[in-house]
């Protein structure tokens, strides 16, 4: 810091570009409006006033994957739906993050043995950043997952990443 010390007017903050970009990304993880089963009800509940997802900058549920940063896979992923889930994930712009919400999205849930039409975990088709356990998880659990994801995002290297993988996407 010695090179730039005392060169600016008082009131100017100096920081790294990575920190600023990651701070902005962390503070506006916009989820996609997208629910598959009963977990989606719990996700909606998380968005409403009592739990208020907006406190963490994630209340703006976008109706298109192109404006979304975060995909909350909330519910049972059937084989029929799996192709759509994958398509939606591919349409999202980088950087993109995935929260697998509930037992069904994690591992097939109650359908893990006899559910012939159910995908046994959404991580078989798209990379998952955070898994939330529960059937369905309580809103606190989803908030916890979001905060965990935010902590991972703020630590990611963006400008200076080089070959080191950032969190999410290709990891």
């Amino acid at each position: 810091m010695s090179v730039i010390e005392n060169r600016f007017e008082p009131g100017v903050l100096v920081t790294s570009l990575d920190t600023v970009i990651n701070w902005a990304r962390r503070s506006s993880l916009w989820p996609m409006t997208f629910g598959l089963a009963c977990c989606a009800i719990e996700m909606m509940c998380t968005g409403f006033a009592r739990y208020d997802l907006d406190r963490f900058g994630s209340g703006a549920f976008r109706a298109t994957p192109r404006q979304s940063d975060l995909m909350v896979v909330a519910g049972t992923v059937t084989h029929l739906m799996a192709s759509r889930v994958k398509l939606l994930y591919e349409q999202m712009a980088e950087p993109k993050y995935v929260i697998s919400m509930g037992s069904c999205a994690n591992a097939g849930g109650p359908y893990w043995e006899h559910g012939y039409s159910v995908l046994k975990g959404v991580d078989k088709i798209i990379p998952v950043d955070v898994y939330v356990t529960g059937c369905p998880p309580r809103p606190e659990a989803l908030l916890d997952a979001l905060l965990y994801l935010q902590n991972r995002v703020i630590k990611g290297r963006t400008i200076a990443r080089g070959k080191a993988p950032i969190f999410g996407g290709g990891v």
Partner: peptide, 24 residues
């Protein structure tokens, strides 16, 4: 492109669908 009709009593569960395994 699903094969078979699942609610028939003699339906055999598929091992995989389009290359995605159906096992837990």
């Amino acid at each position: 492109d699903w094969e078979g009709h699942p609610l028939r009593k003699d339906y055999v569960y598929p091992e995989s669908y389009r290359g995605v395994t159906n096992k837990a």
